[in-house]
Each structure stands twice: as C-alpha cells, then as structure tokens.
C-alpha cells in the first residue's frame, strides 16, 4: 500500500491519530490493509508492528476509533 498525502485546510485544526501507535498522524502517512480494514500509520514499519504484535492484542486494537 502507498504513502498518502493528506490535504488539510488551514482552518481545519482537527488531528488524526496513527492507528498503530496513537501518535499524531503526519500529513504524509502510510496506509495498509488488514482483514478488509484500511489502517493509517506514521511510517511503514508500523505495519509490521501491527501484524506481529497488535493484531494479537485485542486491547491494543483501536484502529478506526
């Protein structure tokens, strides 16, 4: 999956969070799909972190909340 460039209007002060770590999501983020869901992450290595750890830790799965 690709890097995605987010366009944010200057008057939009809302933020989004990384679906894996909870960090702020930068304007350019990494997108990947798991089990039919599209997740947003700060960088590609968090896709591996999700697959290797968080997928098996239900409490940590806050993607899309």
């Amino acid at each position: 999956m690709p890097w995605i460039e987010r366009t944010v209007s200057w008057h939009d002060l809302g933020v989004e969070y990384c679906d894996v770590t909870g960090q702020l999501l930068p304007k350019r983020y990494w997108s990947f799909e798991v089990d039919g869901r599209t997740l947003k992450a700060v960088e590609p290595r968090y896709e591996d972190l999700y697959l290797e750890y968080l997928r098996e830790a239900p409490a940590a799965d806050f993607a899309g909340e």
């Binding site: 809302g14 933020v15 969070y17 894996v20 770590t21 909870g22 968090y46 972190l49 968080l54 409490a59 940590a60 806050f62 909340e65």
Partner: peptide, 15 residues
Amino acid sequence: IDIVARPGTVVNVRH
C-alpha cells in the same frame, strides 16, 4: 523502542 498509547485514555488524551 515502540510505544503504543490508545487515544482516549489517560495516557493519550483526546481533544
């Protein structure tokens, strides 16, 4: 080191 902090908890407050 990786840190996971779920948004909406006391360790990652939501607006």
